[in-house]
């Protein structure tokens, strides 16, 4: 008899856990993995370090190499940050959309919204 009440309650709790915690955590995990994968190519940390140290580009240790290196790396750092920020925003957007998704669905079905 108790099962008639407990089992649906358990199922509801599990659904809410999945909807509110599990999937958003997975989404943030994908965001994190995406940023790491991009960093494999953009190597932001290393580029930033070399930019601060005014290291030259491609081993050209003349003053031209250092100036060009500084400028190139500056833009590269900016672009990298922009890309990472973009990925983060996309992730946040997806998470928000996900959280409101079932609510939106019900509102659409009932034509309240």
């Amino acid at each position: 008899m108790i099962n008639i009440f407990l089992t649906p309650l358990q199922e509801l709790t599990q659904f809410l856990y999945w909807w509110v915690i599990f999937v958003p955590r997975r989404l943030f995990g994908w965001v994190y993995d995406s940023i790491l994968a991009m960093d494999e190519v953009l190597v932001l940390g290393e580029t930033f370090r070399l930019w601060i140290a005014i290291e030259p580009l491609f081993g050209d240790y003349g003053w031209q190499g250092r100036i060009i290196g500084f400028l190139f790396r500056f833009f590269r750092v900016l672009i990298s940050l922009g890309i990472y920020f973009g990925i983060l925003i996309v992730g946040l957007f997806c998470t928000v959309v996900w959280l409101v998704w079932p609510v939106l669905a019900i509102l659409l079905i009932l034509q309240i919204w």
Binding site: W19, W101, P102, A105, I106, L108, I109, Q111
Partner: peptide, 15 residues
């Protein structure tokens, strides 16, 4: 409402 039902079905399938 069809869009709403589709959205709900997707959630149920994912769950």
């Amino acid at each position: 409402p069809l869009v709403g039902w589709t959205m709900l079905t997707v959630v149920i399938w994912l769950y």
